[in-house]
Design a protein around this nucleic acid. Sequence first.
DNA 1: TTGCTTATTGGTCGCACACTCAATAGCATC
DNA 2: GATGCTATTGAGTGTGCGACCAATAAGCAA
Lengths: 217, 217
Amino acid sequence: MSSSVERKRIRKSPEARRTEIVDAATAVALTEGLECVTLRRIADDLTVRPGLISHYFPAVEDLVAEAFGSAAGRELDLLLPAERPDGTPTEHLARFFARTSGEDYDAISRLWINARHLSRYRPVLRDRVTVQEAAWRGRLEGLLREGVERGEFRTQDPSVTTIQILVVLDGLGAHANTGTGGHPAAVARMAVTTAEHALGLASGALAPGGPASNTPN
Amino acid sequence: MSSSVERKRIRKSPEARRTEIVDAATAVALTEGLECVTLRRIADDLTVRPGLISHYFPAVEDLVAEAFGSAAGRELDLLLPAERPDGTPTEHLARFFARTSGEDYDAISRLWINARHLSRYRPVLRDRVTVQEAAWRGRLEGLLREGVERGEFRTQDPSVTTIQILVVLDGLGAHANTGTGGHPAAVARMAVTTAEHALGLASGALAPGGPASNTPN
DNA sequence: TTGCTTATTGGTCGCACACTCAATAGCATC
DNA sequence: GATGCTATTGAGTGTGCGACCAATAAGCAA
């Protein structure tokens, strides 16, 4: 029973090791926050020496940015898949709101707050945040435009409507770290209400249960 | 010309020194962020030894929370004075939006993002944030209720409307650290629009220039 | 003027961080 | 099985942080 203080080295291909590092960093970023993405923390997670992390990311800031980009990008793919083989724009948008209203989404809200704040001090991260904001905006705007084309949505300016929806979502997410309980229903449904109103939809058209559960106000 | 490495001690009353420290911390929090409120930083600003700050705030976290509370409280007094000797609720609300839309307000948006994020790790700060959120909500709700009483505003639930307005404001402020340029007008005016809609006011009633500058959409 | 209270100092400790670099040892290739 | 490339280690540097505490002196009161 050699109490292994000395571990056998495991030598991996740069690509494999790199993605391994980024994945670990992404997990830490999501669960504990971007400031916990440190050389030692990630190295410990991978049972590896800190120097190795430095080898792949000479500046930690780059790894932090990568972790954020990875997490945000992955979530966006869940929320609004690039390919939408089945389902109408209305259905996709309803699913989008269902997910952004779920409790699991709190972790993502926290991540965005985290990233937006840290952007103040870390230029590389700031750039990544800007990129992701554009990606989220673009993906949602694409969905809205398709809905307009198909005659499901009605809005003068899809790009403005997109931002309006995202602003409300950001506002609702702002309290992810401090919010004691939930908001009143009328507040929790703000994003959906805003979208329905801006897209000329009937009240309840984007609600979780579908148009059936039309609870006015 | 004694290059004073050794400074003469200046002994102040605990109250005076304490407020001096809090004021310095508040200034740092507003300009550089809450994580820059450190023993050494504040001590340097006051040309005093770090130990002295520790003497008044044995745990730095308390000073950080105090700095946030001080900054947020002061801003709230500017936005929505507790005493409103003159002016109608409509006028006060219009002024509120004028200020929250101004560029100076970016520093406050940054502070809120900062505090909400840091709340994740610092319980004392989290409590302070909760207190301030309640204060802001309370003050705005008071104004809305008065407007309703006077027949200027019309809303079923002033407390819900209050939160809705604040959510939009938070959403707009979320990008204070990353926002490249300004939003399109329809987005920038979202808070005002939301309020006008929720309070049964004519479009433009709360706009910066007053009801005259009624620019539809 | 003397004495006393206590605000203030100076120094120190331990910790966590990013970053650097020569030495080491997997492992693919021959 | 030997060889060479390079992924990985180990050890160390310097910085900034919060916290702690005995010694000092400012300024008030007697």
